[in-house]
Design a protein around this nucleic acid. Sequence first.
DNA 1: AGATTTGTATCGAAGAACGATACAGACGTA
DNA 2: TACGTCTGTATCGTTCTTCGATACAAATCT
Lengths: 269, 269
Amino acid sequence: MRSTLRADPAVPLEAPAENDPLYVRAAGRALAVLSAFHHVDGPLSLSEIAKRAGIDRSAAQRIVHTLKVSGYLRRGPNNRGYLPGLRLLDHTLDVLRLDPLVQRATPVLLELRKTVRERVDLSLFDETRLVYAFRMQSKRETFYATLVGQSVPIFCTAGGRAILAALPDERVVDILRRSELTAYTPNTITNPDTIIEQVRDARRNGFATVRGEFLQGEVAVGVCILGRDGLPLGAIHVGGSLAEWSLEEFVEKIAPLCIEASQAISNSL
Amino acid sequence: MRSTLRADPAVPLEAPAENDPLYVRAAGRALAVLSAFHHVDGPLSLSEIAKRAGIDRSAAQRIVHTLKVSGYLRRGPNNRGYLPGLRLLDHTLDVLRLDPLVQRATPVLLELRKTVRERVDLSLFDETRLVYAFRMQSKRETFYATLVGQSVPIFCTAGGRAILAALPDERVVDILRRSELTAYTPNTITNPDTIIEQVRDARRNGFATVRGEFLQGEVAVGVCILGRDGLPLGAIHVGGSLAEWSLEEFVEKIAPLCIEASQAISNSL
DNA sequence: AGATTTGTATCGAAGAACGATACAGACGTA
DNA sequence: TACGTCTGTATCGTTCTTCGATACAAATCT
């Protein structure tokens, strides 16, 4: 399971915004404590939390206490260390159910999944990354379970490229410059110029495709969802197996349906 | 979509713990601000946030500002009001990937789903409620998309009853007493004594069943997952359609597999 | 057994958060 | 049009909260 988790591309680090008269430090620190759990792979002790959050052990102590009594933290197995608490999932629910895109997209994507019979994902665009809102599986076969909040790179995924296609070239270049162009598979395109060409293709076609660039043996079609202001909010992403499909077949069958779905969603926003 | 969301059973309200010398108030307030979005159905203005969080508008202003620059809040559509921000999903990921139960259960449940070909859920036990960690769909048909963080009642779901069966009678009674025994369908059992009988059945069988008590037309088998200390951590939940199955058939085919899966998970904890 | 961890508890000084107050723009209404 | 009320934003002095030092017991490692 752990092996399926990639490093998050460019997570905006806790930027405390020094000298901001409106900034509430203690509030920020509580979140810094919770953020200490990003990227770690097990329970954290008080001192570890303090170090990662960049605060004193005493401060950590009191904040951890506060978070614990509220359910945002809990003790780890065998009462060793701390883990993020289930209370956080309440906020997950708030984010998802209040998100206008998720609200509109859900029924449409349920329908889409019923017709395409392949894996359908919805991801949300957040500055420089794509965050998974949910995945609707299909078929028996599953690569792995995707967890909400997992984020995928923009440069080598179908959804990501579809989003880039909706942005002006200058922002595309900027995002690519800020991305770590890691080769996740032998097929991953890491040359910025080639990526930009792919993006231009996507711009013409109205959808983007990827063949095994992020996941071995996966074909995917991605279509961007635009907000009222014309800016990309997220992307639909349909993925299938290269064992069953050629890229061309997949595109021919899937892409029109995705575009239709995307328009249905965009129009209802 | 909204119509699929039930009121959360007994969410532990923000209990500020007055006169706790270790309590960091500003930290608690930040979370109170985020919690203001529970149960609402749209963007919240500054004053609404203040009211719901029980703080002054000025305090709300600064905390909202702090949360906004950190990505925990964002402006709503058309720049009206505020919504919970995507940054929260990073913490969702932390909760899920660091949860020992989720870690162990994921591969087992992927396998389980492959063999049963029905919907498989994992939910986590949190004091008086069951919170969804994830759902693995199967088949074409889907009732609706379940969102992470959604919680279901304990008293009338298969997973819930399985958990009750793992608790001593006194705690069962206590939890039932604290639950709102709402009839979600005409089939919902709301009589505490009858529920306790069901729980005793589940205790004998090693699994619990439910027929259309929470969702019309759904059969479900639930099996509890025990921690090392013998206390319930969560539940596996397999659901099918009454249009395809009788309760007996479903149980006969599904229950043994669920129990096996549960034991595989418990043993690896 | 000794040396570090762990989590917990207490306290006074320093400083940050509180809440009052003020202002401009958007919105709806008369 | 002019009004009132909402929105979000900005500034400031006093108070009360948070900070970080210090201390202690229990568990864990060496």
